[in-house]
């Protein structure tokens, strides 16, 4: 367990060294936040209670999206590129013989990264948004805590999906296709473009059940106090279930892939 804590801290530090990149990213997130916020203002001016949100809640949703974009890696491009590269070059064989669990090792690192991105990439855009617009920020500490738990679970789900994407490189030898699909799904079904409560009919119902909703839609609703009491427990169970299922599938795929590497002799 201590090993994984060290790995997680390493993941945090690794991203913390890119100061200029972080500043540039914050700038970009903030610019996009502004643009999207204005479109939401126009939309909610027409339909004040759209999707069950009032205007401040809708705007909060926008800025949460920008704040969590990197944390939950909704548009792809985290550790999986590195893992795909290791699989492609065959270096993965070395990793598989190490006395650490491959999945846990990468998960620990990704959690460290997410923690940094939440602080480094999340706070400043959120503060900018709060200055420029009237946001619905929780007054008591509990929703903030509940939100953090939900974000953490979202990160694990996000990790589990990207881990599967990376493992696909064992069979496709080029993870680009799978990464592309995962990117598109993340973009569309996380709520990044538009809250999933605005998706009509069946599309909306399906979108709200897919794992990508755990990355933004669920944490944002927790933040906005849409889930409390047993409702909160229910969405946590929802998130944990997806995390468990996807991690488990990842382990199974990893097992098959490992046998494949052993058969090929690396």
């Amino acid at each position: 367990m201590r090993l994984y804590a060290v790995v997680a801290a390493g993941g945090f530090r690794r991203y913390a060294t890119y100061r200029i990149e972080t500043a540039a990213g914050v700038f970009t997130n903030t610019v996009f936040g502004f643009i999207l916020a204005y479109t939401f203002v126009a939309l909610w001016e027409e339909r004040p209670r759209l999707g069950g949100y009032d205007m401040p809640e809708a705007l909060t949703f926008v800025w949460l999206g920008q704040a969590l974009l990197m944390t939950c890696v909704m548009m792809g491009g985290g550790f999986e590129d590195e893992l795909i590269e290791r699989i492609r070059t065959g270096d993965i064989a070395v990793d598989l013989y190490r006395p650490v669990d491959l999945q846990m090792w990468w998960l620990a690192q990704d959690l460290g990264r997410a923690a940094f991105h939440l602080l480094g990439r999340g706070i400043v855009p959120m503060v900018c948004g709060a200055f420029a617009f009237d946001l619905a920020l929780p007054g008591s500490p509990w929703p903030w805590l509940a939100f953090l738990v939900s974000v953490a679970l979202g990160v694990v789900v996000s990790f589990a999906i990207r881990y599967l994407v990376a493992l696909s490189a064992f069979w496709l030898m080029d993870g680009a296709g799978a990464a592309q699909i995962s990117f598109l799904a993340g973009l569309f079904f996380s709520g990044m473009l538009l809250p999933l409560t605005l998706f009509p009919g069946l599309l909306g119902e399906v979108a709200r059940l897919l794992p990508w909703s755990t990355m933004l839609q669920v944490p944002a609703d927790v933040f906005l106090g849409k889930h409390t009491g047993w409702g909160l427990v229910r969405v946590y169970v929802f998130q944990v279930s997806w995390a468990a299922v996807l991690l488990l599938v990842g382990r199974m795929v990893q097992g098959v892939a490992t046998r494949r590497v052993v058969v090929q002799g690396g």
Binding site: L184, F188, L193
Partner: peptide, 24 residues
């Protein structure tokens, strides 16, 4: 993928217009 990613952008706008007749 490149086509789809940009198309999603417009799908989001179409979804907005499922709720309103005009934007701005």
């Amino acid at each position: 993928g490149n086509f789809a990613a940009t198309a999603f952008d417009f799908v989001a706008i179409m979804l907005m217009f499922a709720h309103v007749d005009a934007l701005g």
